[in-house]
Each structure stands twice: as C-alpha cells, then as structure tokens.
C-alpha cells in the first residue's frame, strides 16, 4: 500500500493539521514507511484468534449512577480562547 500526495493532504485536513505544500513529499515518505511496517504484521496468520483488547484478561469496570462531578463552570471555561458569559465562544459554524 502506498499513499499518494492527495491522500496525504486529505488525512491532514481530516485531522485539522496544517501541512505546507513543501512538506507533503516528506510526510508521504514517512507515512509510507509506517504503513510498510504495519503491513509486515499482515504476514502473521491470525485466523481464528480473537483480537487482543488489552494486556490483561479484564472487563470494563462499571461505576454507580451517582452525580459526583461537575458544577465548576469557571474551571471548565478557564482555558477557553474565547468565551461569552457562561458559554464557550467559537467562530460561527452554521449550516
């Protein structure tokens, strides 16, 4: 599998990472190297083996349905680049 420059630009755009045109070729190389490594894994036969989902045979722990958190809007908003009263404010996004 080999990525073309258009795919590199698309991945960057989906991830909201700005990539300058001069960086595309290098990124294309690096990503292809990474994909090459991952393709090696495909050489291992895993027929009939369940995917490994963790390092230990554990299931998800559940918590009780109790309100134990929240109620600190100032802390939640503290790092916001912009706010309007109790709201986060962002550049307008509307259909």
């Amino acid at each position: 599998m080999s990525l073309d420059p258009a795919t590199v630009r698309r991945i960057a755009s989906l991830a909201r990472i700005r990539v300058e045109e001069r960086e595309v070729a290098q990124l294309q190389n690096e990503l292809n190297t990474i994909l090459g490594w991952i393709e090696q894994l495909n050489e291992v036969n895993v027929d009939g083996i369940a995917p490994l989902t963790g390092g230990a045979q554990m299931a998800l722990k559940m918590r009780e349905d109790v309100v134990t958190d929240g109620g600190y809007p100032e802390q939640v908003l503290a790092n916001a680049p912009d706010r309007a009263g109790p709201f986060f404010a962002v550049p307008k996004v509307v259909e």
Binding site: D65, V66, D69, G70, P73, Q75, V76, L77, F87, F88
Partner: peptide, 26 residues
C-alpha cells in the same frame, strides 16, 4: 440516568450553561 455515560456530571435538562460538565466531558 442521573449522571453521564462516562462521567459523574449530572444530566438534568435546562441547567445553567456549562454547570454540568466534568473535566472528562470537556
């Protein structure tokens, strides 16, 4: 439910903005 799927913040409708938000939700 009283609290959220993955955090302990409350779920009540109509609360003051951003008062039912945990650091997980944010």
């Amino acid at each position: 439910s009283r609290s959220k799927l993955f955090s302990g913040a409350a779920t009540d409708f109509g609360a003051e903005p951003n008062t039912q938000v945990s650091f997980i939700d944010a």
